[in-house]
Computed example of a mutant assay.
Amino acid sequence: MVRVRDWSGLAKEVLGGRPISREEALAILHSSDEELLEVLQAAFLIRSTYYGKKVKLNMIINAKSGLCPEDCGYCSQSIDSKAPVSKYPLLSKETILKGASEAIRRKAGTYCIVASGRRPTDNEIDQVVGAVEEIRATTDLKICCCLGFLDEKHATKLAVAGVHRYNHNLNTSREQYPKITSTHTYEDREDTVMQVKQAGISPCSGAIFGMGESDLEAVDIAFSLKELDVDSIPCNFLHAIEGTLLAGRKELNPRQCLRLLAMMRFVNPTKEIRISGGREVNLRSLQPLGLYAANSIFVGDYLTTEGQEPTEDWGMIEDLGFEIENCAL
């Protein structure tokens, strides 16, 4: 097993253009608690080189809830979920526009329109396109969409409307994927990421950690995202919701979450790394330390779970001596 004795030295090598190896990435996940602050300081050397002390805020609107035919084991909206979540079709254009105003109030620079389901219909794409065009014409918000699998036609429509970014997570490693979902494949997800890139939309794809993957598989996820050359990488930590297939699973602790964020930063040094779902329940009191590796968070609630109050996130950023990036206010 590779052992790294100089974490800052390794960070400087990465900044000098040397990609870290899978063995070095695994060493980050195997580092001791006594080394943790050194690992985070090294990750911050990389993070601060590309992003300074700025933190990007993103806000989600759950634009279509439940009603999903997919069987993803982590998801409270899946067809197999017994979780008591709201179920409704795609929200009206007016409601999506109100969400954009709320994103601005929360000091978010990016507004994320998310809909459950395998793939959007033509009518749903047209409804989202109408909302996006109006938001783009009247605000400075950047728009991210997450609507399921895309074909070339739908990807092109979203690009023309002015969608900046499209999220479609790999979620876990290729080897682990069949254990999490049976209604689609890892390759299906890769294909949508490629469709997004070909349409000229910035690709966003990340992972959910804590679903039974080994440390080596966690490293594989980071390198797969590097090979796809995605621009933004959401790092979710499983929030095991009662009623889902993964209910009761609790594999992570705050320190290992920090190592995962640091590993992702070392492997993908120039990319936006976002602490995403499960941040509050997994990182807990160590949330601020995550921003020494990551440069982006969601502000407010997630899809079917609550986040902390925006004022707490603003205060956390201020207490760190960091600043909010691209606030639309």
Rank of each mutant, 00 (worst) to 15 (best):
Q176S: 08
L283I: 12
E190C: 09
D188P: 02
E318D: 06
L37P: 10
H154D: 07
G307V: 08
T49G: 05
R284M: 15
R284Y: 11
G148T: 09
V163R: 00
A294K: 01
R22M: 09
V163G: 00
L67G: 01
N282G: 06
A27R: 10
C144T: 13
L97V: 06
N326K: 11
G52E: 10
T156V: 06
R5N: 15
A25E: 03
K197R: 13
L258W: 04
S101Q: 12
R279Y: 07
R136G: 05
E251M: 11
V4C: 14
C72W: 03
D191H: 14
V230R: 02
R274E: 15
S224W: 10
L286V: 10
S31M: 14
S8P: 03
P69N: 03
L228F: 12
E23M: 08
P178R: 06
Y50I: 07
F298D: 00
G73R: 01
N167T: 07
Q287V: 13
S224D: 15
E24V: 03
L97Y: 05
H168I: 01
K98Q: 10
L252F: 14
L90G: 00
D71T: 06
K87C: 13
G148N: 08
T139P: 07
I143R: 01
T95C: 05
Y50F: 15
Y51N: 12
E23G: 12
I201P: 01
V160D: 12
S173A: 15
V128M: 07
R118L: 14
A222N: 08
R118I: 14
Q256F: 13
E175P: 04
H30W: 10
A131E: 05
N326R: 10
E34D: 13
A247N: 03
L303A: 14
V39T: 08
I20H: 04
N236F: 00
L260Q: 08
N62F: 05
L238W: 09
G210L: 04
I324R: 04
G109C: 12
P254M: 05
G248C: 14
G9A: 14
P203N: 08
L252A: 13
E34M: 07
E323A: 01
L329C: 10
A294W: 01
T305E: 00
E312T: 08
V39M: 06
G321V: 04
S76M: 09
G16I: 05
E325S: 07
L45M: 15
E227R: 15
Y302D: 14
A222V: 07
L150Q: 01
T270M: 06
P288V: 06
P19G: 02
E70W: 06
Q127T: 11
V163F: 00
F44W: 04
V4T: 12
T156D: 03
N236Y: 00
V55S: 05
S276E: 04
T110D: 05
G300A: 03
V128C: 09
